[in-house]
Write a protein that binds this DNA or RNA. Structure first.
Lengths: 350, 350
DNA sequence: CTGTTAGCGCTTTCAA
DNA sequence: TTGAAAGCGCTAACAG
C-alpha cells in the first residue's frame, strides 16, 4: 500500500499488471477487454478501494457528471419539491446535483452561475424567479452565453424569455386569473393581495393575473389593496398584519403562494378572525404539507416535482434544441377550491 | 476570439501578455504580482469572461471547493431545514453543496458516498438516519475510511458511533422519553406509536425513548401498540389507518416525526375523530410550516438549521479532530406542548 | 485487444 | 517578481 493520498488508476494498473489504458477501459467498459484482464483490474480496484478522480476524468474530456440547480431557498417547500424532481431525473442519468442557494439575492444568483460554470456542470437549472431588472438580465445573459458556447445546457423555470433558454413555464398569470375569477363567482367583491417583492417575475405575474381576473369581473384592484412582504411565510404574516392595521375591508385575501397564505392565515387568526368565516384566503402552488392544513387551502395546483423533472429533461435533451431561442414548455395550474374560502358574509367587521 | 470550447487561463495570459504562472498568481492573489501586470490580467479575464476550470484547479492540487450532503429526501422539511443550515455555512466558506438523495435506500447511500468521494468533496455529511444493519455499517465504514485517509472529512447526524465520525447527536431518545412522560402526566394511559421503519436509527431511538418514558410511568408499550409505515406523511396516514382498523383504544398517538403526525391527524379526521378532543397526537422535530397547523402540534423541538450548520462546521474544523474516534456534539430537544394534545376524556369510543 | 503517449487546464516548485 | 516546466489522474487517439 502506498503512502500516497489517493489510490489512483496507476496503482490499480500496477496491481493488476496491466497498462493504464487497459485499466481505464476495463473500468469504464468503453472497449472490449480480455475477460481475465478485466477481472484482474476489477478485483484490484475493489481491493484497493479505488475511486476514480472525477476531476481528472472531467479534465481528460471524459465526463460531465454534474448538474447545477439554483434556487432561492431549499427550505421553501416549493423549491424542495422542484429539486426533488430534478434529483430523481439526475439520479436516473447518473448525475450528481450541485445545489446553490441565492436567498433571492440577484448578485448571489449571478455568482452561483459563475461557480457552476467553473464546475463545468453539464446543465444549469435556474428554478427561482427572475428579477425584473434589465441590467441584471443582461449580466445574467452574459454569464450564460459563454457557458452555452462551451457546451453547457441551460433550462429555467418561469423566467423572462429574454434569457432565450429552454423554459418550463407554469401559467402563473392564467392560474391567478382563474383563481380570482372563481373567488369573484363565490361572491367576493372586496379583495386584498398579500404578496412578495414585485421585482420577482413570479410574483409580478401572479399579481397581474389576479388584477386581470378581477378587472374582467368589474372589480378594480388598486395599489392600496396590495400588501407586499418577503416571499415566505413570515412575509405573508407581516403583510397581513399591515393589511389589518390598514383596516382593509377585504372579504378575500389572495396570497401569492401557499407559504405566504399560511402566514396570512396565522396573522388573521392571531387577530381573532376566522378563516373562512370572517375572511377567505387563497394560496398558490399546492405544496405538499399544506394539503393537510385545516381548513384546506384553496389554491392553484402546480405539478412541482414534474416541473423540476422536466426542466432537467429538457436541458439534457439535445435533440430538440432550437438554435438559440430555446424551447418553451407551458404548464397550466388547476384551481382547487377547498375550505379556506367561502361565500362572504352579508355584514363584516368594521 | 478562439473557436475553442472554453476560455482558458492560457488565453488570458496571452491576451495580457504575461506568462501562465503570472496570470494564475494574479487571479488567485497567492503571491505578489506587479500592479500593472495584475491589472492587465484581471481586465483580460473580465474581457474574455474567463471562468477557471474547477476540475483543473482541483487536479492541480489547488482547491477542494465542494462539500457533499447526503439526505434521504430533500422534500422532507426535516432534511430541507438541515440542508439550509449546511448551505449557509457552505456559502460563507465559498463552498458549493453537492446534494445526494438516497430515498432511504441503504445501497443508494453507499453509492452516494462513492460518488462524492470521486468528486473529492472536502467533506461528506451524512444527514439521514443510519440503518441498523451490521453488514451495511461495515461497508459504509469501508467506504469512508479511504476517503478520510485522502484528507476527506466526515460528519454525521444521529448515527451509530461505530462510524467513528464527528457527530451531531440530537437527543432523540431523551426527547421522546420526556414527551411520553409529559403525555402521561397529562393523564393518558393508553398509547399508540405511529412510526417509520424500525431499521432507521432515528426511528428506533425515538420509539425506545417513548417506551422508556412510559415504562418509567408504569405503562407498558407492547408491539401491538406500534404501527409502522414509511417515514413520511403517507406513512403516518397509513399507519394510523391500521391503528384505527385494529380498533386500538389509544387516547394518545405518539408519531415518530412531525411529518408523520400530519398524516396521522389527517387519517384520524378522515375517520371522523377530532384532535385533541377524541385523540391526542404528538410529533417530533418542530419543522417550520407545521408550526402554523391548527391545532398546534405538540412536539419535541430540534434546532434543525443549526444541526446542519454545526455538522459542516464540525467537519471543516480540523483543529479539534480527535485521532479517529470523532467528536460528538449532543443537542437536546425541547418538549413543546401545544393544542394537539389534551387531557383524555373519561369515556372513549368503542 | 493492448500498450504508449499526448494532452485536458491549472498550480507550483525551481531558476532566472 | 516573473517565467519555464513538471506534474495532478485520467481518457482517447494512435500504433502495435
Amino acid at each position: 500500500m502506498s503512502d500516497r493520498q489517493h489510490v489512483t488508476l496507476e496503482d490499480v494498473a500496477r496491481t493488476a499488471e496491466v497498462s493504464l489504458a487497459t485499466a481505464s477501459r476495463a473500468l469504464n467498459g468503453t472497449t472490449r477487454v480480455r475477460d481475465d484482464l478485466r477481472e484482474r483490474v476489477l478485483s484490484a480496484a475493489a481491493e484497493l478501494a479505488y475511486t476514480p478522480n472525477a476531476h481528472a476524468q472531467a479534465l481528460a474530456g471524459g465526463s460531465r457528471r454534474t448538474v447545477g440547480v439554483i434556487c432561492h431557498d431549499i427550505s421553501d417547500p416549493y423549491f424542495a419539491a422542484i429539486t426533488r424532481g430534478v434529483m430523481r431525473v439526475a439520479d436516473s442519468h447518473g448525475l450528481l446535483v450541485m445545489l446553490a442557494g441565492t436567498f433571492a439575492d440577484p448578485d448571489r444568483e449571478l455568482a452561483c452561475v459563475s461557480t457552476l460554470r467553473a464546475q463545468r456542470a453539464s446543465a444549469i437549472l435556474l428554478t427561482g424567479s427572475a428579477f425584473e431588472d434589465r441590467a441584471w438580465e443582461r449580466r445574467m445573459a452574459a454569464e450564460l452565453e459563454p457557458y452555452r458556447r462551451g457546451g453547457g445546457r441551460v433550462a429555467v423555470v418561469t423566467r423572462h424569455r429574454s434569457l432565450k433558454a429552454d423554459t418550463i413555464a407554469p401559467d402563473n398569470r392564467g392560474g391567478a386569473r382563474a383563481l380570482a375569477e372563481a373567488m369573484h363567482r363565490l361572491g367576493h367583491r372586496r379583495f386584498a393581495v398579500v404578496t412578495g417583492p414585485p421585482q420577482l417575475t413570479t410574483v409580478a405575474d401572479r399579481v397581474a393575473g389576479f388584477r386581470e381576473g378581477l378587472a374582467g369581473a368589474g372589480v378594480e384592484l388598486s395599489d392600496r389593496d396590495v400588501f407586499a412582504g418577503s416571499f415566505d411565510r413570515d412575509g405573508g404574516y407581516d403583510a397581513t398584519r399591515a393589511l389589518l392595521a390598514a383596516k382593509h375591508k377585504a372579504t378575500c385575501v389572495l396570497a401569492a403562494s401557499d407559504v405566504m397564505a399560511v402566514g396570512a392565515v396565522s396573522a388573521l387568526r392571531a387577530a381573532g378572525l376566522s378563516v373562512p368565516e370572517d375572511v377567505s384566503v387563497t394560496g398558490f402552488d399546492d405544496v405538499p404539507l399544506v394539503r393537510d392544513f385545516v381548513p384546506g387551502l384553496t389554491t392553484v395546483s402546480l405539478p412541482l416535482e414534474r416541473i423540476g423533472a422536466e426542466a432537467l429533461e429538457l436541458a439534457l435533451d439535445e435533440s430538440g434544441a432550437t438554435g438559440g431561442r430555446g424551447r418553451v414548455r407551458r404548464l397550466s395550474g388547476e384551481v382547487l377550491v377547498r375550505e379556506s374560502t367561502a361565500k362572504p358574509r352579508r355584514r363584516r367587521r368594521g
